[in-house]
Each structure stands twice: as C-alpha cells, then as structure tokens.
C-alpha cells in the first residue's frame, strides 16, 4: 500500500484512546483490513451458500456493496448492516474481501 493509501486509511479510522495504534505501516493497514472484515466472514466464506463475496473482482464488489447500502439493490439484511459503514469503509471492504481469496487458482473455480 502506498503512503497516501495508508494516510487515507488512517483518516477512516477513529482513535478513542491514546493507547490505541494509528495505522502507520503496511502491517497496520493489513491488520485494519482483517479487523474490518471479521464480522463479514461469519456468513460470507468461500464455501458458504450465502452470497460469495469472493466471487467478485473488487470494483464489482464495491458497486454491489454501494447498491445494497442505498437500497438500489434490495436485500433482507445487508442495507441495515452496510448503513454502518462509510464509503471509504466499503472501498476497503471490497478490496480486502476480494483480494483474500483472489489468488489465481481459487478464482478459476468461480469463473463459470
């Protein structure tokens, strides 16, 4: 991740307590992304019958998350959850979720 990317990411976090870390290294940024998707992966895994978020390239996933958040695409639940996430969060979510499983071979599984 670039320095600029890290700064942008840092701006999306909040720091209620001085004892908490700021995102200042690539390792922090990776941890921050892993933390952000922790609740998502309770339902959305590579093998779950629920919508497989890993099946999408990041830009498609981002478009989908945005449409679910606004209600442009209807859902039973996702609009309620996504309304707790900023657009910057959605960018990070879509990148983190798609890059996790993306490595070449696992991707081919879902090509059809």
């Amino acid at each position: 991740m670039t320095k600029l990317g890290i700064a942008a990411l840092a701006a999306t976090l909040w720091f209620p307590n001085a004892a908490y870390a700021q995102v200042s290294t690539p390792a922090d940024a990776r941890d921050a992304d892993t933390l952000l998707i922790a609740p998502c992966t309770g339902c959305h895994t590579a093998t779950s019958p629920l919508a497989g978020v890993y099946d999408y390239p990041p830009d498609e996933l981002l478009a989908l998350l945005r449409a679910l958040k606004t209600g442009e695409r209807s859902s039973t639940l996702m609009a309620r959850l996504l309304s707790g996430y900023s657009d910057a969060d959605l960018v990070r979510l879509s990148n983190a979720l798609s890059t996790l499983a993306a490595p070449s071979d696992s991707y081919a599984d879902h090509a059809n």
Partner: peptide
Amino acid sequence: ANAQAKNCAIQILRSLRDLSPLPSTMANT
C-alpha cells in the same frame, strides 16, 4: 462471539509484537 474472536486474535498478535491495539468496527446479526 465468532466476530470478537477474529478481532481479538489480531489484537493478541499485535500485543505479542509490541504493537498497540487497533480499534475497528464490529457487527452482529
């Protein structure tokens, strides 16, 4: 509990690396 466990795993790893905790959003359904 499942989501907290994943969050806490990262916080434990950070503490073993002498890094401060990193606050994050959590969700429940």
